[in-house]
Design a protein around this nucleic acid. Structure first.
Length: 619
DNA sequence: AGCACGCCGACT
DNA sequence: GTCGGCGTGCTC
């Protein structure tokens, strides 16, 4: 008997696979990994063949409408990797399959694979090996990586190079092309669909076997893969913030293991996860250290001290910083002031009744942007005209307080009227230019600006975030800011004793790692345990809250003692783009075990109308 | 995710 | 009576 049943998955959050009969016309061409059109419920859907079979238990079976491509879009190894990933990230196989494809192909564009290129030679497999390249200087990085790439290419094995900053991708591709003398494909979703499609096809055909790209390029269909490099492996943009919530580093790990390839993680300041893995010998550590020491001085300006002296007025720049700015300006040096907040006033309130203008889709107050003359939501960019009179009590004016980059700019103008002051943030656009003082936000780390003196104005908003990574992220920020400074960095803070500040003061990432790892071990946080977060959202706060708490009870009742189910907590912000969010966090040693509990518990909660449930593994 | 089905209130 | 709102359930 012929295998005339195809098991097919679709890109929806439902488990399959679904059985279809194979029409005679395509019986010869259809293979595992083929893409087809199938009738699904009462509409048509793109399906992916994951198995061919002789039997089915389904009585009323439908027939495949048509085959999309002449050749399978996935090989068996890729399909099984995607299945593994789907189970790790708690999504359906079909959803994982679709995230591995460029958007044009996901939408149904046909692929053509030229036959001459198609036959795959048999190469001997390499070896799975993970190296963490902790490169503090960036000096030796490129020589080392180039040698590794050349080695892989000389063995006719392909390379994937991940670069989180899209702005650097073209440059790096050009450099690689010159050095290696081969074509390099660029894969990221911010290029035109047509171009992305063409590059993907070139890789799929085996015409190009070096790929450089951002997060999604980890799925590139490189033939005979031999090497994966993840540059700036600590960069958070490798984690997808929508379902499936995959991390490119984790995908790379599983892919490298399966394909027996070499994986190199590169960073000036490795993530705690990777650093810890190197400590326990899971990764091989290569350390390119600073020769000599940096002469940058780091000073802490304690805001608690000065607040006492200036009871009346809120001080923006402490005198310690103000005096140093003056000194630097006198020596015709350059100053950068770093602040982590856009706009002018970040807190708006009626002096009489306490009313404050809120975003109508998010539960946050609006920020006043002086140049735009608008009240703006920092999450969804909702805008409205500034209010002259309080709309609630109609008796008073709205008081503007709270510090943003624009206000820091105007305060700096007031204090240093002679200086040429620029502001560079996403509001102002590219305005690095010539300056005495530059006011800037996170965007500063994306350019190449240096200075003699750098002031960090509001670190505390970063340190006080309720996120177990807040300390790591704050340290990483300070560490990278420090590299822009020739002479002195001054950090204004109310938490001078914070571990991350003490460590940066000594310019010692290892001190930070040591303290932070100790803390995370005590608290049972990653990398010692895995976090899996169940996220619920819907239009009614009460309903989301209720469903969350009954799901919480359910999870508590079924999970074992090796898994902690933490009390539900509200999203931050609670309401985002019109949806209220509540979460349940699970903690355990094995993702597989946590997920099996989640799947058990979630079964009965699957379709509660109006509520969407997502699972975020390794938040 | 879509889409239909079915059960209640409002209305020509 | 029926039009339509949304809560519920299924998709081979």
């Amino acid at each position: 008997m012929k295998r005339n049943i195809a098991k097919i998955v679709v890109g929806l959050p439902i488990e399959g696979p679904f059985d279809y009969s194979i029409p005679r016309e395509i019986a010869k061409e259809i293979k595992i990994g083929s893409r087809v059109i199938v009738p699904f419920k009462n509409f048509k859907k793109i399906g992916y063949v994951v198995e061919l079979s002789k039997f089915t238990k389904i009585k009323k079976i439908k027939t495949i409408t048509s085959l999309i491509d002449y050749e399978p879009i996935f090989d068996k190894d890729t399909l099984s990797l995607l299945k593994k990933l789907a189970s790790y990230y708690c999504c359906s196989w079909g959803e994982m399959i679709e995230t591995a494809l460029p958007s044009s192909i996901r939408k149904g564009r046909r692929i053509t694979i030229d036959g001459a290129q198609h036959k795959q030679n048999k190469y001997k497999k390499g070896e799975f090996r993970v190296t963490l390249l902790h490169d503090e200087t960036v000096d030796k990085r490129w020589d080392f990586l180039l040698r590794q790439i050349q080695k892989s290419i000389s063995l006719e094995r392909g390379v994937i190079f991940l670069e989180p900053q899209i702005a650097y991708i073209d440059k790096t591709a050009k450099w690689l092309k010159e050095k290696v003398g081969r074509d390099v494909a660029i894969l990221h979703s911010k290029q035109p669909e047509k171009r992305e499609f063409k590059q993907w096809i070139d890789v799929k055909n085996g015409r190009i076997n070096i790929v450089i790209g951002s997060r999604s390029a980890i799925f590139a269909p490189v033939k005979n893969l031999g090497l994966i490099i993840i540059n700036e492996e600590d960069n958070r943009s490798y984690k997808q913030e929508q379902s499936p919530f995959y991390h490119a580093r984790q995908v790379a790990m599983l892919r490298a293991k399966q394909q027996k390839t070499n994986l190199i993680l590169v960073s000036q300041l490795p993530s705690l996860e990777s650093y810890y893995s190197s400590l326990i010998g899971r990764y091989k550590l290569l350390n390119f250290k600073y020769k000599g020491h940096t002469s940058t001085q780091i000073e802490i300006a304690d805001m608690n001290q000065e607040a006492v002296l200036y009871k009346r007025r809120k001080v923006i720049l402490l005198s310690q910083l103000e005096n140093n700015i003056q000194k630097t300006l006198d020596n015709s040096g350059k100053v950068i002031l770093f602040i982590n907040r856009l706009g002018f006033a970040t807190s708006l309130r009626c002096k009489n009744c306490g009313y404050s203008p809120k975003c109508n889709r998010c539960s946050v107050g609006l920020t006043y942007h002086y140049k735009r003359r608008m009240l703006v939501c920092r999450f969804c960019n909702y805008q409205m005209q500034p209010l002259e009179i309080c709309p609630q009590c109609k008796t008073s004016y709205i008081q503007y307080s709270g510090l943003g980059a624009e206000k820091l700019e105007s305060e700096t103008h007031r204090l240093f009227p002679q200086a040429k002051i620029n502001r560079w943030d996403s509001d102002a656009g590219i305005q690095k230019g010539d300056f005495n003082i530059l006011i800037s936000t996170q965007i500063l780390l994306k350019g190449h600006v240096d200075c003699d003196l750098l002031g960090v104005i509001q670190l505390d908003s970063l340190l006080n975030r309720v996120d177990f990574r807040s300390s790591e992220e704050a340290f990483s920020l300070l560490f990278r800011l420090r590299k822009l400074v020739k002479e002195k960095m001054i950090i204004q803070t109310r938490n001078p004793q914070h571990d991350c500040i003490q460590a940066i003061r000594k310019c010692d990432p290892f001190l930070f790692y040591k303290n932070e790892l100790k803390l995370r071990k005590e608290l049972g946080f990653p990398p010692f345990r895995h976090f899996v977060q169940i996220q619920l959202r819907g239009k009614s706060d009460q309903r989301v809250k209720d469903v969350t708490s009954s799901l919480f009870e359910k999870m508590k009742s079924i999970s074992s003692k090796n898994i902690n189910v933490l009390e539900p907590f509200a999203g931050s912000p609670l309401r985002l783009r019109g949806s209220y969010r509540w979460n349940i966090l699970l903690k355990g040693k094995s993702v597989k075990k946590i997920n099996s509990y989640i799947n058990k518990g979630l079964k009965e909660f699957k379709s509660r109308s109006g509520i969407k449930i997502n699972v975020n593994v390794d938040i």
